[in-house]
Simulated assay, not measured.
Amino acid sequence: MLAPRSLFVGDDPGVAAVLDTGMLEIFFSGMTAFLHAAALVTSAGHTASSFVPMAVEMVDILPATFRGLAADVDAGEYPGTEDSIGMEAAALGHMVSSTEEAGVDARLPRLLHDLATRAVDEGYGADGWSRVFDLLRAGAASS
């Protein structure tokens, strides 16, 4: 079977291309995040294979997380009721320093930390991570 399912997304072929690009972004970002984490954990003597169960556990929470983020984005509301970007900025800062200390390329966690600190600097530290959507939509012009 070439395609397990077909989904009609409208008459504009550009829409299908954008959706495909979005799906590829999720796929390649997820693989790269796993490989980055594997580089980190193997630097401490673990194997990538032994880390897989923990990685899968994190992946398992993503569907519900995606639904929550999408609801926030669609509503244009970014509640920080469960956690806040300010809190996450601290955790991401730890990720950057831990990665650097391990001698692993820190660009990926640094990108995430930079998004969080930018949000805090723009006055959104009490908002939830979904606020990052606005920063991403604003593009590089505002960074």
Rank of each mutant, 00 (worst) to 15 (best):
A17F: 09
V18L: 03
V18K: 03
L19W: 08
D20C: 04
T21A: 02
T21S: 02
G22A: 10
G22F: 01
G22C: 05
G22E: 01
I26D: 12
F27I: 15
F28N: 11
F28P: 03
S29N: 14
G30F: 04
M31T: 12
A33L: 09
A33I: 06
A33T: 14
F34V: 01
F34E: 05
L35D: 13
A38N: 08
A38P: 11
A38I: 09
A38D: 11
A39C: 03
L40C: 05
V41M: 00
V41I: 04
T42M: 05
T42K: 06
S43W: 02
A44N: 04
A44S: 09
G45S: 01
H46G: 06
T47K: 00
A48V: 15
S49C: 00
S49F: 04
S50W: 01
F51I: 00
F51L: 00
F51R: 03
F51N: 03
M54Y: 09
M54D: 04
A55V: 03
A55H: 04
V56S: 12
E57I: 03
E57Q: 09
E57P: 00
E57A: 12
V59G: 09
V59K: 08
D60E: 08
D60M: 05
L62P: 00
P63Y: 08
A64F: 07
A64T: 10
A64D: 15
T65S: 07
T65D: 05
F66G: 10
G68T: 15
G68H: 14
A70C: 11
A71D: 15
D72R: 08
D72K: 05
D74G: 07
D74P: 01
A75C: 06
A75R: 06
E77K: 04
P79G: 04
P79M: 06
E82V: 11
E82K: 11
D83T: 14
D83E: 12
D83K: 03
S84C: 10
S84E: 12
I85R: 07
I85F: 05
G86C: 11
G86E: 14
M87L: 11
M87R: 14
M87E: 15
M87Y: 09
M87H: 14
E88S: 10
E88F: 06
E88T: 12
A91N: 10
L92Q: 02
G93F: 00
G93V: 04
M95F: 13
M95V: 10
S97A: 02
S98Y: 10
S98P: 01
S98E: 11
S98W: 07
T99H: 02
T99Q: 03
T99A: 00
E100S: 11
D105E: 15
D105Q: 13
A106L: 00
A106C: 03
A106R: 01
L108Q: 13
L108A: 13
L111V: 01
L112A: 11
L112V: 06
L112C: 02
H113V: 01
H113K: 04
D114T: 10
D114Q: 08
A116N: 02
A116C: 12
A116G: 02
E122D: 13
G123I: 08
Y124S: 14
G125T: 13
G125C: 08
D127N: 15
